[in-house]
């Protein structure tokens, strides 16, 4: 088990000193390889807080998290032998707000920062920066620009490139596609999926986009008010009751499929997880 949550609770401290319980009693296992997980749930349900526990950016106030064998807990916090750097390298986290992640003078330096920090040579880090800027759909002219003088979607892309360049074992992406144009969103989801498939890596994506969940996820985690309320396959998830109780939405593919079935008085056989599948099935049914 690469990441193991044992009865984890997390309480934020407000400015007025009041505590706010953002996570309650979370027990959860994430494998080192082979997982493609989407983490969903209503606004303020604790998704980002949970994600920040996956690479020890936050330390639980209750319980413990084991990350690649390293125990992270309140009691262990003062331990001088506790090394977080290897954890940060193994579990790469892309923040919900790219602004929290960008700080170097140029985009190129920003992307190269992570790899260099983890001992990759200057030359190799620059190579990676060039490769990654293309992968996220920007050209090399961006490498010499300031990361602060970019559009919202461009910043998001650069922040993703920076984490990809670290080549972590596990990728945790907090709303990586919000603010991306549809072409960019589809392309990057394919990139994440390929990293998962070709390199057998685990990917965790936080999203509000039910289409992403339905098309890609093998496993879905649903948060509600600091609790983990669902951990299972996407196919069973979208019942009327769950959709209503957890502020979800039915994915477009399912919605449109059901509407067409009803309109034509037919039943489409088999699963249709993406547009191409659905269109092919409709084509068959109508010919």
């Amino acid at each position: 088990m690469a990441i193991k949550f044992e009865r984890v609770g997390y309480e934020y401290q407000d400015i007025d000193g009041k505590g706010y319980l953002a996570l309650a009693d979370i027990t959860l296992n994430i494998n080192k390889t082979g997982e493609f997980i989407t983490l969903i749930g209503e606004t303020g349900s604790g998704k980002s807080t949970l994600a920040q526990h996956m690479n020890a950016l936050l330390t639980p106030t209750e319980g413990r998290v084991h990350i690649f064998g390293v125990k992270i807990s309140r009691e262990g916090k003062k331990d001088k032998n506790l090394k977080l750097n290897p954890i940060r390298q193994k579990v790469g986290l892309v923040f919900q707000f790219p602004e929290y992640q960008l700080f170097e003078e140029t985009v190129g330096n920003d992307i190269a920062f992570g790899p260099k920090n983890f001992g990759v040579s200057e030359k190799e880090a620059e190579e990676r920066a060039k490769k990654m800027i293309n992968i996220v759909g920007l050209d090399e002219s961006y490498l010499s620009r300031s990361p602060f003088n970019l559009s919202g979607g461009e910043k998001k892309r650069v922040s993703i490139a920076g984490i990809l360049a670290m080549e972590p074992d596990i990728l945790v992406l907090d709303e990586p596609t919000s603010g991306l144009d549809p072409l960019g969103r589809n392309a990057l989801l394919k990139v994440f999926y390929e990293i998962h498939q070709k390199l057998d890596k685990t990917v965790v994506i936080i999203t509000h986009d039910m289409n992403t969940v339905y098309e890609y996820a093998k496993r879905v985690l649903v948060m509600r008010e600091g609790n983990l309320v669902y951990d299972g396959a996407p196919t069973q998830l979208f019942s009327r009751k769950n959709v209503k109780n957890w502020n979800l939405d039915v994915p477009d593919i399912l919605k449109v499929r059901r509407a067409i079935e009803e309109k034509l008085g037919i039943t489409i056989e088999g699963e249709t997880r993406n547009k191409a599948d659905l269109m092919a099935k409709i084509g068959e049914a109508l010919r």
Binding site: D252, V256, I260, K263, G283
Partner: peptide, 27 residues
């Protein structure tokens, strides 16, 4: 870099593939 809404993508697919079903298209 934008895309059609799903029902309109399906309509487009029908047109491309010569599937003629005016009532489904209207739907």
């Amino acid at each position: 870099n934008l895309e059609l809404l799903l029902p309109l993508e399906i309509m487009h697919y029908m047109n491309e593939n010569g599937i003629d079903n005016p009532s489904l298209k209207e739907f």
